[in-house]
Amino acid sequence: MSLYNTQKFLYELNRDEATQARYRADLEALIGGFDLTGEESNALREGDIGLLYVLGVNGQILMHYAAFLGIEWFDYLDQMRAGIEKYGPVRAGVYAMTGGGDSFTTEGKES
């Protein structure tokens, strides 16, 4: 697992408009520039928020990436929860699970 490299990919994508342009023009080439596992590459290729969360990507990085992908806030939270359901608990990084993944927001998508 190369969580460091996965987060570095997202860090550079989040803050650098030139990297964002490369992402849109040739994602495979961008991914190829980082030493990533197949699972990590697929997660980035598919924008799999749930898997990236389970792999241990910091929320401050993941949240901005989700916004870049145009994922709405409640969908972002749901995709992390679905990731836990599908892939199991967070495997690495600063957080293992800090709670059960319940919603603590009284507001909802309908609001």
Partner: peptide
């Protein structure tokens, strides 16, 4: 706070 995680909103 538990920002940007599934526990977002917990205080």
């Amino acid at each position: 706070h538990w920002p940007a995680t599934p526990d977002s909103g917990k205080i």
